[in-house]
Nucleic acid binder design. Structure first.
Lengths: 221, 221
DNA sequence: GGCCAATATGAATGACTGTTCAGGGGCTGC
DNA sequence: GCAGCCCCTGAACAGTCATTCATATTGGCC
């Protein structure tokens, strides 16, 4: 028998839906997020998703071309909203690279705590998309990384960052990757039952980020 | 049609094996690592794995009870070797918490660069194991995290670490998680074709780790 | 040569998959 | 009343899967 993650048989463990009140498209999206996050894209069947919103398998195809397109839809919407929020946060943080970095990390971590189901799916299930679709997502991820790199470059030029060097040279791209890995994967283990609130997580991670790049202390005002 | 990751049809793209010279068990393990890393456990079929080592599907069951047990086997062996290496590195690093932390991060990052296929499978495919098997792995991960926490506690007590605080209190467990996320996920993107060698990665990450916990500079000798 | 145990084969089993589609129900605007 | 449309159903299709098993084949040892 094909083994599944635990809980496979009782898909409708979550409150049995008679018929979702939301627009069906939204209900499908929500059910897909929840199921993909919990059990993984390839083992969640179309029947599972539709049952979770009180419909039968065929109805999916009135709203999406395929199971693949459903995944692509929910991942791209999540990813582009993330990119938008990051840009907005940096743009609204003033001129100091330290403030920009802190704003970026704060919004990024907060979002990955709050919307951890969405973030988890967008980061873990991307590999199931076909080449063309996956390229879009990767482009957006690279864009987010480059926001960080720009902040770092600016900070180094203005002497407020002194990042660790490799053999006497800066590798700001690698540092950005390290920082993003750290912040992204909060969505894999953070739970509201934990020790820290989302706000505290955001503060802690922003603090760590500033230390990582050797940010000079803010001048006393 | 069930969509798959690209390259699904030509499984034997890797040099067509007549019949592996190694012991068949080892050949199966190696093929499983490679295929799981590239395409993910649930879509890799028993036929794929066995074809990749020049056997037919039925032969798997002379060496493993099931596909599940094969996954469990390769993950636990990887994980316990990781735990062993971390303990060894810390034990051999002397008394200073800074040296212990650096040694831990160096070996951890180096391993995740060098054996990135194994690390990737152990970290990404763990969710397919059933409850009992997954508990083992999680226990080992917790043990590794607790090594870090102990180093932090020691360093704080001795005044060589000044980690970032949340509302005036230390949360060393969260910092350890952040550090581990950062170091673990190197295996998702590091490639030998990149800018940095494994050695340089290890140095850079050790440096970032020391900064994250506010390590005091080593006294001049 | 003869025997034994270990191992490989490949057809068969029973179940599950994404997707299609003919048929039907229940709205709107007239 | 009735068309027209949107949406849903559930059977059917053509495939896939892990696992089992009776039947070989192999290599070592007496």
């Amino acid at each position: 028998m094909t083994r599944r993650k635990p809980g496979r048989e009782e898909v409708e463990a979550s409150p049995v839906v008679e018929r979702e009140s939301r627009a069906p498209v939204e209900a499908i999206r929500a059910a897909a997020f929840a199921q993909f996050a919990e059990r993984g894209y390839p083992v969640v069947t179309v029947r599972d998703i539709m049952k979770a919103c009180g419909l039968t398998q065929g109805a999916l195809y009135n709203h999406f071309k395929s199971k693949d397109e459903l995944l692509h839809d929910i991942i791209t919407s999540t990813q582009s909203e993330l990119e938008r929020q990051c840009k907005q946060a940096v743009a609204g943080a003033g001129d100091d690279p330290r403030a920009k970095l802190a704003a970026f990390v704060r919004i990024y971590v907060m979002r990955h705590c709050r919307l951890r189901v969405e973030a988890l799916v967008a980061n873990r299930e991307i590999g199931w998309l076909d080449g063309e679709r996956v390229a879009d997502i990767r482009r957006s991820r690279r864009a987010i990384r480059d926001i960080l790199v720009s902040i770092f470059v600016d900070g180094v030029k203005r002497g407020v960052f002194e990042p660790p060097q490799v053999d006497g040279r800066n590798d700001l791209k690698t540092i950005a990757m390290a920082l993003l890995d750290q912040c992204t994967h909060v969505s894999m283990w953070y739970g509201p039952g934990g020790d820290l609130t989302e706000e505290q997580m955001a503060n802690l991670y922003a603090d760590m980020a500033l230390r990582m790049v050797g940010a000079q202390p803010f001048p006393p005002t």
